[in-house]
Amino acid sequence: SRMYLVCPMNTSPQVDPHKSGQDVWEEFSHSFTPAVREVVEFAKKIPGFRELSQHDQVSLLKAGTFEVLVVRFASLFHVKERSVTFLGGQKYSVDALRTMGSGDLLSSMFDFCEKLMNLGLSEEEMSLFMAVVLVSADRSGIENVNSVEALQETLIRALRSLITRNHPNESAIFTKLLLKLPDLRSLNNMHSEQLLAFKVH
């Protein structure tokens, strides 16, 4: 039985059947590491993030990196043509990915990315939204909830004011954006389950 890794953070879904599980994992890890580093660099630039404790910085990044990457790479999911571009640059149709074993997570990612892209946000709005996604006081293992909560509130206020200024006639956009947060959580949970299954396999 042929194995596939249908994650667009991978260079390609094809897995060399001659490689050991460890090698496959190392190659995959090598391909997503730069994107994770980018998220850390992004976090460092969020005003106030570096003032949080080291423990809380790590906890927020551990819990939220996947969600930030989904927002950051939403444009890899081409809703109209039903295809996904992998980081290696190759495009794969949803049908092809389905035959490789992708399931509900891929469909849910498409739904999410379509709705997010339809909001037509600017790069600045997307960045501020990613900061709000990352700085969430209800992540597990946060030791100073008050500090994270205070930073989260500041970021949400800044996002609201930016959206209100840029879209004065579309007051629902801010609400729609906040409603994306639970959607991201559920994608994150589905993704963790798949990673676990992969690791166990």
Binding site: V36, R37, E41, R50, K62, T65, S192, K199, V200
Partner: peptide, 27 residues
């Protein structure tokens, strides 16, 4: 397996990427 981020090496990548400026803070 309760903490996929740690198991999958994500924590290590995050800590290394953060380390530079965390060391600055400690000085």
């Amino acid at each position: 397996f309760n903490d996929p981020a740690s198991n999958l090496g994500l924590e290590d990548i995050i800590r290394k990427a953060l380390m530079g400026n965390l060391e600055e803070r400690q000085e």
